[in-house]
Design a binder for these strands. Structure first.
Lengths: 228, 228
DNA sequence: TTAACTCAGATTGGATCCAATATACAATAG
DNA sequence: CTATTGTATATTGGATCCAATCTGAGTTAA
């Protein structure tokens, strides 16, 4: 008798589950910055002990998504405007270079996938999904660069600022502009113009940074005013 | 009675101590790639339980310095030649940009410090210190860029390949060339030529990458031959 | 009144114990 | 003799327990 060898999917460790869930919650802005992450509170939510929770928190800390003070606890990391701005500059540098490398290697299939994300981004009514679709669009193009380490770092840097980006996308007219810029980036890729795709990607990211910083400042001004 | 309020140095947590020690050991090449890191072995070395060891290993895993397989254990991460090459490309991109930003902001004091590292690098007879001095030289220049996030990522990317770099520095004539290239970078910085400093930094890193890859290939070929 | 002190509860960091899984080796059937 | 199966040991992942520290309310003294 011969059976197909099925790779029995090891369920992920509890620490990994907690890590992914918290990462997602932070990226999506469900956890406010500065919010305390109590170990046994989280442990109860996942029906585990505090041990895997602590390992997850250590990993998040290494990623810069949370900050820990000994015997005080772990809080969702808060970024200053300067830090947000720097991370967007960083992304602009890295992502423009990666897309330059990607363009000459884009297959028809990959272009088609990017196009699907482009359309999904334009037509999706549920704003809570825009952030994810935005990621998918860009990453589907970057994949072709064949630079896994670069992609990993890009992912990590976007993680740190994604909640701001998502908040801004759904407000102001960030969505409208993003849609037009995505189209332009896609067009440059489709016609094989790597330099233009790189230039547009850089501008796209720095554009978002600028309007996002205005947004953050406003929000902080309001919070300031309310607290008095 | 009034005493000066001294910030009593909280001794670092056990997890942090273990993390730093293992990170250092991996970077310096004291742990061979693929080597198993047994939890209670390490715990005994540091006179602690396995709990802080596990947290340290999680952090190292997040940094990509070790790889973990569930119920099998954690080993020092092994990089393929392609991965090493990609990380050097990444460093070349990032570090050349950072030094470009740094040059116009370099103070006399910072230049002087870089010069001290430059001389230390040339005159230090103990080869085991070269890797650290090399880092110090570059970072002392990068500091002036005022880009802490960029520096953090640079540090993390260097961590992954530093053991290869250090091995190569001490062999072949990597040291001789590095010394000359450092001098040229320093000179460009001293005369305020940001573009040239960037160009030289990029070439410096890619140079190292090339000779290092040759070195790795040779070493693997030897290992291959010996195993037969 | 206000600042310093005390003490109880909450929370984190670490140690020890138990469960799940992998690995190596012995036993056995063909 | 070889391949498979069973079993003991090692190792990791997770739970529970204990110690160290923080926090905040109440108390006291100037």
């Amino acid at each position: 008798m011969k059976l197909e060898t099925v790779d029995i999917r090891q369920s992920a460790s509890a620490a990994d589950v907690v890590f992914e869930a918290l990462r997602k919650a932070i990226i999506e802005g469900e956890l406010a910055e500065g919010e305390h992450l109590r170990q046994d509170h989280i442990a109860q939510m996942f029906n585990t002990s505090r041990i895997p929770v602590r390992e997850a928190l250590k990993r998040l800390e290494q990623e810069g998504l949370v900050a820990n003070e000994r015997y005080k606890g772990t809080v969702v990391a808060a970024l200053s405007s300067a830090e947000v701005e720097e991370i967007f500059e960083f992304r602009a540098l890295l992502e423009s270079e990666v897309i330059r490398l990607a363009v000459p290697r884009l297959s028809e299939e990959q272009l088609a996938e990017a196009y699907r994300h482009l359309q999904a981004f334009a037509s999706e009514p549920d704003a809570s999904l825009w952030g994810e679709i935005n990621r998918n669009f860009h990453y589907s193009l970057y994949e072709a660069a064949g630079r896994p380490y670069h992609l990993q770092v890009i992912r990590s840097s976007l993680d740190r600022v994604d909640r701001y980006l998502r908040a801004q996308l759904t407000l102001t007219n960030g969505m409208t502009r993003a849609r037009a810029e995505h189209q332009a980036i896609y067009d440059a890729c489709a016609r094989g113009d790597a330099d233009e795709a790189a230039r547009l990607t850089r501008a796209h990211i720095l554009d978002a940074s600028r309007s996002l910083l205005v947004f953050i400042e406003e929000r902080r001004a309001v919070a300031q005013a309310e607290s008095h």
